[in-house]
Design a protein around this nucleic acid. Structure first.
Length: 286
DNA sequence: GTTCATTCGGAGGTAGAATG
DNA sequence: CATTCTACCTCCGAATGAAC
C-alpha cells in the first residue's frame, strides 16, 4: 500500500497488457540524485507530473522549470535531459504512451477518442501547466493497482485509471493559466532575500502577509509547490553557491546564511545540490 | 585546524479535517 | 476564503569522531 516508502519505481505497461503504453514511474527523493542524460522515447510521448519540489527539463537549448503541481509533456522522438540540473528533491510521476495507432487500443477506448486525447496532449507539448489534486489521487491509485496486479479486475482498473488520467490532463491543459505572480508572494520574496543571512521563521512570514500560520503554510504550498521552509532553504543554498566562489571559509558562509552549524549547512547543501560545499568549491575552481 | 558523516532528542513544521 | 486544532514527522543543532 505505502508505495511512497520506496524512493523510485518503474512499471513496464506492456507487462500489464496496456498495448499503447511503455512505462510509468514514480520517484520521491529526499535529496537530489544525478541528472538524466540526453535521451528520447521512440514513438512515445511522455507526460511528467511534478508533485512536490522542483524539476528542470531541457529540450534543445530550451530550459523548462517545473514546480510542485506542474505538468510537462515531452513529444515523441524528442531528445531531452535534465540539463545541468540534477533529478531534484521532490516527488514526480511520469508516463510514456505510444502515439502509433497500429499498436492497438488505448485502455479499450474507441479509436477516435484515443486519437483525440493524444492529439490534444501533443498540441500542448513543451508547455508547462498546472495540475490538480484529482491527478495525484488517480496516479497514486494507479501505482497501487500496478503494485498489486493480480486479476482481470486489476486490468480493468488500470485501463480506467489511465483513461481518467489522460482525460483530466487534457482538461487541465486547456484551462487558462493564472500565473500572474501574486503581490503577497513578491513581498515575501523580498523579505526572504533581505533576511537571508539569518534564521527565518514561518510565523514571521505568515505575519508579513497577514495570515494565520496554519493557513499560510497551506497557501504558500499551493502557490509555490513547496513548504515555506524548503523555499527559504533553496534560496539560501543558491546564495551559498555564490558565496562559495569567494574566499570565505565554509563555516563563515554557513553562519552568514543563518545556519547554526557548518555541519547542518553541509547536509542541507548536499540535499539540494548533490555535493558537499567543499567539493562544490573544488569543482568551481577546476 | 578544517571539513563533513553519523547519530539522536526535542522543537518546530506539515497535512488534513472540521468549522465559520 | 480563512481559521483552528491535532497527530504525526521531519528537520535542526549538538556531540562525536574520522579524514585530510
Amino acid at each position: 500500500m505505502d508505495f511512497g516508502t520506496q524512493e523510485r519505481r518503474v512499471f513496464n505497461l506492456q507487462d500489464f497488457g496496456v498495448k499503447r503504453g511503455l512505462a510509468i514511474g514514480h520517484y520521491r527523493y529526499k535529496q537530489v540524485k544525478p541528472g538524466l542524460e540526453r535521451h528520447q522515447h521512440k514513438g512515445a510521448l511522455e507526460i511528467c507530473y511534478c508533485m512536490k519540489g522542483q524539476q528542470h527539463y531541457k529540450i534543445g537549448e530550451q530550459l523548462y522549470e517545473l514546480n510542485g503541481n506542474d505538468i510537462f509533456v515531452v513529444p515523441p522522438n524528442t531528445v531531452h535531459s535534465t540539463g545541468e540540473y540534477p533529478e531534484d528533491k521532490g516527488e514526480l510521476f511520469w508516463i510514456q504512451l505510444l502515439v502509433d495507432s497500429s499498436k492497438g487500443k488505448l485502455c479499450n477506448m474507441p479509436k477516435e477518442q484515443t486519437e483525440f486525447l493524444l492529439a490534444a496532449l501533443l498540441d500542448k507539448s513543451e508547455h508547462v501547466f498546472k495540475g490538480s489534486f484529482q491527478l495525484k489521487f488517480i496516479l497514486e491509485k494507479l501505482m497501487v493497482q500496478l503494485e498489486n496486479f493480480d486479476s482481470l479486475l486489476s486490468k480493468i482498473m488500470v485501463d480506467q485509471l489511465i483513461a481518467q488520467l489522460l482525460l483530466e490532463t487534457v482538461i487541465l491543459s486547456n484551462k487558462p493559466q493564472q500565473n500572474a505572480p501574486s503581490v503577497k508572494l513578491n513581498e515575501l520574496d523580498k523579505f526572504i532575500h533581505k533576511n537571508l543571512f539569518r534564521m527565518i521563521y514561518v510565523d514571521e512570514m505568515a505575519n508579513l502577509v497577514g495570515m494565520s500560520v496554519g493557513y499560510f503554510k497551506f497557501w504558500f504550498k499551493s502557490k509555490t509547490g513547496m513548504p515555506p521552509r524548503e523555499y527559504v532553504n533553496r534560496l539560501k543554498i543558491e546564495q551559498a553557491k555564490l558565496d562559495l566562489r569567494t574566499s570565505k571559509r565554509i563555516t563563515e558562509v554557513a553562519f552568514g546564511l543563518g545556519f547554526g552549524t557548518s555541519q547542518y549547512f553541509a547536509t542541507t547543501f548536499k540535499k539540494f545540490t548533490g555535493t558537499t560545499p567543499k567539493s562544490f568549491r573544488r569543482l568551481q575552481r577546476e
